[in-house]
């Protein structure tokens, strides 16, 4: 599958009153996703010509342990003002970026991660106690909040 890369200003044709959505379009290659954040007609498939590219998102952290996200906030505000919808991942990212309120799903991920960390820590301290027969919980404090 090869997607011709168009200008960020977009080549997609659209109706004035059709439903638009700001969403990801998967680029990159096999096993290495890279997402463009685009605005397009809601009914269209992700690899159809887009109305406009509004940013990028790299789901793999880079060598400095960072997720790189880029938004063209000016155009995003324009399209939101024109009534464009948002896909959940984009809404989550916009919440993380501070443009919108934090998406509920981000909070869900957060407490699920915290709970998993707590459980893992408890399990580790338990198994450690079993193995040593001496309760020396040195990593018991991690993941609590």
């Amino acid at each position: 599958m090869s997607i011709p890369l168009a200008l960020a200003s977009g080549t997609g044709r659209f109706y004035k009153h059709s439903a638009k959505i700001i969403r990801f379009a998967r680029h990159g290659c096999t096993n290495r996703p890279f997402f463009h954040i685009v605005v397009m007609e809601r009914r269209k498939a992700q690899h159809q010509p887009v109305i406009e590219q509004l940013g990028t998102y790299d789901p793999f952290p880079n060598e400095h342990e960072e997720h790189l996200v880029a938004f063209n906030f000016e155009r995003i505000r324009y399209w939101l003002g024109n009534g464009a919808h948002l896909s959940t991942p984009v809404a989550e990212l916009l919440g993380i970026a501070g443009l919108l309120p934090i998406h509920p799903r981000t909070y869900m991920t957060a407490w699920r991660n915290r709970r998993a960390a707590e459980e893992a820590a408890a399990k580790a301290s338990e198994s450690g106690a079993d193995a040593n027969k001496a309760p020396e919980s040195k990593e018991g404090g991690s993941g609590t909040s």
């Binding site: 940013g55 997720h67 938004f71 063209n72």
Partner: peptide
């Protein structure tokens, strides 16, 4: 309330022209 929402930090750039 967002603690641990991700393993790595997010860097967000505004690429407005």
């Amino acid at each position: 309330a967002l603690t641990n929402f991700s393993n790595t930090k997010f860097v967000i750039a505004d690429i407005t022209y």
